[in-house]
Amino acid sequence: MKLVVVSAGLSVPSSTRLLGDRLAAATVRRAGADADVEVDVEVVELRDLAVEIAHNFTNGFPGRELAAAIDAVTSADGLIVVTPVFSASYSGLFKSFFDVMSGGDKDVLAGKPVLIAATGGSGRHSLVLEHALRPLFAYLRAVVVPTGVYAASEDWGAEGLAERVERAAGELAGLMVGLATGPRGSGAGAGAVTGAGGRFEVIPFAQQLAALRP
C-alpha cells in the first residue's frame, strides 16, 4: 500500500515535516502490527513545488515535478496532510496545491482516507483543524479520520502529542486496510468479515476503531 505525506513546511528543518514523519511512521507501524500490511511512504514537500504551483495558475499546465506530486497524491491509498498555521488558517501554499490538483474537480480525492494535521507556535490555533482543514477535505469528498493532530511548540516531547499521533495513525491505518480489502481489493468490503456459510458479517466502524486504539 502507498501512503503519501503532503508537508507545507517552509523551513529546514521543519516542525511540520517532523510531525508528518511521526504520523507516517506510526501509521506504517500500526498497519503492520494490526493487519500485517506493508506500507510504502512518499513525502511531497510543497516548498520545492512553489514556483511550479505559481506557474500552473498562470499557464494552466503543471510542471514535471508538480505533475508527479499530483499523481502521487491522487494514486495514494492514504494521505497525511500537514500545514503550518498562517493567519489562523492553513498556509497559502498548502491551499494553492490542492486548488491546482483539484482543478475544479471536487471528486479528485473522493473516498480517499486523509489524516489532517497542523503545527503552530501556540495552542490557541488548534481549532484550525476543525474550521479550516476538515471542511476543505470534506469538500473534496475525502474520508477524514476522526482524530486530527495539532502540535504547538510546547507539545513536542509531551505525552499528549504522542497519544494523539498513535490514535490518529491507528484510525488512518484502519481505513486504508479496510478500503484496500473492500470493493477495490478482495471484494469483502470495508468492515466485513466472512462468517458461517460464506456470508459477510458487518462490523460497526466505531468497533473497528476501538480495536485499533492502544
Score class of each variant (00 low, 15 high):
G92W: 08
S11E: 14
R134M: 11
V149M: 09
V193P: 02
V193Y: 07
G195Y: 04
V100L: 02
H125I: 02
F97R: 06
T119V: 15
G178Y: 01
V44T: 09
V73F: 01
A54D: 14
L10K: 13
D34T: 07
I80N: 00
G185M: 09
S186D: 05
L19P: 09
E171K: 07
Y90R: 04
S89L: 06
S14R: 09
N59K: 14
L136T: 14
T83Q: 10
G157R: 10
G195K: 10
V144Q: 13
V43D: 03
R167G: 00
V82D: 05
E52Q: 14
A151L: 02
V82I: 12
V149S: 10
V5T: 10
A211D: 14
K95M: 07
G92N: 10
D21V: 13
L127T: 09
G198E: 03
G189P: 10
D71A: 15
A206H: 11
L93Q: 14
G32I: 01
V100F: 01
G174K: 09
L109T: 10
A110N: 14
A35Q: 04
A152E: 08
F137V: 11
P13C: 09
R47E: 07
L129D: 02
A26V: 00
V114R: 06
E166M: 03
L93S: 05
L19A: 11
R29I: 00
G104S: 01
A180Y: 11
G92T: 05
H55F: 05
H131G: 01
A158L: 10
S96F: 01
D36H: 13
G187R: 03
F205N: 00
K106P: 00
L23H: 04
D71K: 15
K112L: 15
A151K: 02
A190I: 04
Q208I: 15
I53L: 12
L109I: 08
E163L: 12
F57W: 10
M101H: 03
P214N: 04
V81A: 07
V149T: 07
A188H: 06
P183I: 09
A188S: 09
E65F: 02
A35V: 05
V44R: 10
F205P: 00
G92I: 06
L127Y: 03
F61V: 15
A192L: 13
V165Q: 04
V100H: 02
E42R: 15
L129N: 04
F61K: 15
D36F: 08
L18A: 15
L46Q: 06
L49K: 04
V39T: 13
A35F: 15
G120W: 03
L109V: 07
L172W: 11
G20R: 01
L18G: 11
